[in-house]
């Protein structure tokens, strides 16, 4: 199962809830303003580090770079993906839950 999040964790609780309902083996994709949740040094770092123990977390690089960030700013273990990767994730997973 793929979970997608597109809102900043500072604005919405989508990321927190996404992590709460994700299970072992699920994938989480952070894009648009949700990329802020993938960054080192924010108050959500612990939450994401915890999520990484069971799930694969991806960040959409074009959204990251557009916001002045690079993969080096991202928490260890979060994987980079691009638009094609986003499509593949959507296709490879039986269901997609969009945490709007």
């Amino acid at each position: 199962m793929l979970h997608t999040v597109n809102k900043s964790p500072f604005d919405k609780n989508s990321l927190e809830n996404c992590v709460r309902f994700s299970r072992k083996g699920h994938s989480i994709l952070l894009f648009e303003d949700a990329i802020y949740g993938a960054l080192k040094g924010t108050r959500f770092e612990a939450l994401l580090t915890e999520a990484l123990k069971n799930t694969s977390v991806y960040v959409l690089v074009p959204d990251l770079e557009a916001r002045g960030m690079r993969m080096e700013n991202v928490i260890e273990g979060v994987k980079a993906t691009d638009y094609a990767g986003f499509v593949n994730l959507s296709v490879d997973n039986k269901t997609v839950q969009a945490w709007l």
Binding site: M1, T95, Q97
Partner: peptide
């Protein structure tokens, strides 16, 4: 609870989010 809800989501063919 969370586990039950997560299981419910996993069982679906289609999830529509609002």
């Amino acid at each position: 609870d969370e586990a039950q809800m997560a299981e419910l989501m996993e069982q679906q063919d289609v999830v529509l989010s609002f």
